[in-house]
């Protein structure tokens, strides 16, 4: 039954970190073309219900596989690594230090003479860090053993920090633009 397949299997990919983005997008379109509720507008209630469920699962799988962070997390979970987001995460102090600095910089944006320029500098910094971590992830998954999985888990947690920071930066940007 398709609904029990994992996201990689659903899209016909091997369970691995590296994915061809074009192939992913193409297969997504093919799957939705076959299963989207628009294809079942005239079908029986059961078929319409099933089509919604399948289309929702294809959307979920696509979103997970498309983002390197979500894909990494999902892959680690498939390999038995558990994430407990509620609990305090143990990240190295150097990283937490950097986070605090970035957060402070973000808080000070409002007070500088050109807030938007300063903000876009911070956002570029966040982006560069994300790209570097993504590269590290790829290297860890290439080796893939118990040790690298734990390291990848730490990296995923760090990337989640950065995503939240990025969201806050975007919200601040919107606020600044609206006030102009």
């Amino acid at each position: 039954m398709a609904l029990t397949q994992n996201h990689f299997e659903l899209f016909g990919f091997p369970v691995a970190f590296d994915i061809d983005a074009h192939q992913l997008a193409d297969r997504y379109r093919e799957l939705q073309r076959a299963l989207h509720p628009d294809r079942y507008a005239n079908a029986s209630d059961r078929e319409r219900r099933l089509s919604i469920q399948h289309a929702a699962q294809i959307n979920e799988a696509f979103q997970t596989l498309k983002s390197s962070l979500r894909r990494a997390r999902y892959l680690l979970q498939l390999k038995g690594i558990e994430f407990d987001d509620e609990k305090e995460t143990h990240l190295d102090s150097a990283f937490l230090m950097e986070q605090m600095e970035l957060r402070e910089a973000l808080a000070e944006v409002r007070t500088v003479s050109d807030p938007l320029a300063s903000l876009s500098g911070i956002m570029a910094d966040i982006k560069a860090r994300q790209q570097m971590m993504e590269k590290q992830l790829r290297e860890l998954f290439a080796k893939d053993n118990e040790q690298t999985r734990q390291q990848a888990k730490q990296l995923v947690q760090k990337m989640q920090f950065l995503v939240r920071l990025q969201q806050e930066a975007e919200e601040l940007e919107e606020e600044l633009v609206a006030a102009m």
């Binding site: 899209f11 016909g12 093919e30 799957l31 076959a34 299963l35 029986s44 059961r46 099933l50 399948h54």
Partner: peptide
């Protein structure tokens, strides 16, 4: 009728998925 055709409907969906990917390759 819906109950009787239940498995048939589910099989058709699965076959659609396979066809979508097969068509792609």
């Amino acid at each position: 009728l819906d109950k009787t055709a239940k498995d048939f409907v589910a099989r058709r969906m699965d076959s659609s998925i396979k066809k979508a990917l097969a068509g792609h390759s």
